[in-house]
Design a protein around this nucleic acid. Sequence first.
DNA 1: GCCGTCCCTTGACCAGAATCAACATCACTT
DNA 2: AAGTGATGTTGATTCTGGTCAAGGGACGGC
Lengths: 243, 243
Amino acid sequence: MSCAEAKRCHTNPLVNCGDCRLGALCLPIALKTDEINQLDEIVKRGRPFNKGEHLYRQADPFHAVYAVRSGSFKAYATADDGTEQVTGFYLPGEILGMDGISSLSHCSSAVALETSSVCEIPFNRLEELSSQMPSLQHRFFQIMGKEITKDQQMLTLLGKNSAEERVAALLLSISARNNHRNLSATRFRLSMSRAEIGNYMGLTVETVSRVFSRLQKQEIIGVENREVEILDMEKLKGIANVA
Amino acid sequence: MSCAEAKRCHTNPLVNCGDCRLGALCLPIALKTDEINQLDEIVKRGRPFNKGEHLYRQADPFHAVYAVRSGSFKAYATADDGTEQVTGFYLPGEILGMDGISSLSHCSSAVALETSSVCEIPFNRLEELSSQMPSLQHRFFQIMGKEITKDQQMLTLLGKNSAEERVAALLLSISARNNHRNLSATRFRLSMSRAEIGNYMGLTVETVSRVFSRLQKQEIIGVENREVEILDMEKLKGIANVA
DNA sequence: GCCGTCCCTTGACCAGAATCAACATCACTT
DNA sequence: AAGTGATGTTGATTCTGGTCAAGGGACGGC
């Protein structure tokens, strides 16, 4: 995303779902124009979040889900002993906050990893609208189903795969999601720290750092701080066990 | 469950949602009597599954979700290289098959761990009915949300916890789910093998076996083959980091 | 009741990632 | 531009759990 584009995206709360560049990735897929307009009415677009600001916190009452408009968020759960577990990274067009649906309070927190903005979708309004609009209901079932399959793939990764396989899989996931948003699949900036990557993948910072170094030495990726370039996509897929 | 009860449960496909012992755990929560009857009309109750029979297989077209009526199922995904990853165990009253919602084909397989029966809920009928019945829509959003939070807790477990913590957490999970169904929280029979437990928890059979032995030596649990008794619930919770 | 297979347990050894530690570098503040 | 705290890299060492191997026991079929 260019700077100008980013700025427009963060600062213009007037863009509606119909015009949104992300429309095709977000909730409105498969909705008709007038349906999109109805959805648009319940969506709240607030001021952007600065890096480190929270969208919601664990134990907050649940009242909405959020579509990332720009930037990125990390969701994480805090255990009784204070340790944190990152449960997901959310990029533009992706929906977060669904962890609160079952118990009506969030069981994780969400924090902006950079200057970011969201569309807030009040859940009771979404439910009402879904009742009247089968295609929206269908779409939201689909989005929740996707979250389930994503988490289950993650379980496989954490249960079976080595440090290299995990890191490779994360890079490929980000690459694919960028590609889907018409951004470069081979060159991108990580908005999360090594520690956050490690936490998410069940590894320590040191291990993540070593894997990055090793992959760079093998000329599979190029790394400069948080800037990553995938130099050999095939080899990377080989490492990640994604044929 | 007594033998007679089990037999009635497996073999009597005429029990309806209104009469079902599991009603309070399953889909019908918060539905009115006439709503339950409508739900009942779309539910299909087939013959029981023998141990080892599949409810659905990976890549099968998705057309229904299933509520476990009796027995238990394991869901697992098979990777390209043939290795399997168990993604969940499902006990009576729990819903499985939601992994197919997003892509319209199942991305995991489900197999009966013992003689078991299910209620099949065709998904397009469920969607139709949900559109007309906000409380059912709400309930199903809730069930999917619960699957999401369950998977995310599992991520934390696999990302951070030691072998002992993982096994303790599984025993406590089964205990709590049994308790919820008015069965003993302290004494139960595992329907899954050590290998399946290990696979689910990201451990080898040997490690699971060793953990069982250690917990038994400390008199925290009693184990005889697949029969488990929790002798010291507090200590077990201490080990699982569940305060 | 016997046999074969699968399941489980236990031991010895090994490897991959965690931990501990030191240092380099980045980014933000002043 | 310098200083400071957070972030990242690299090396040495430790340790948990994986791997390999062997044997015992349960269960289902005949």
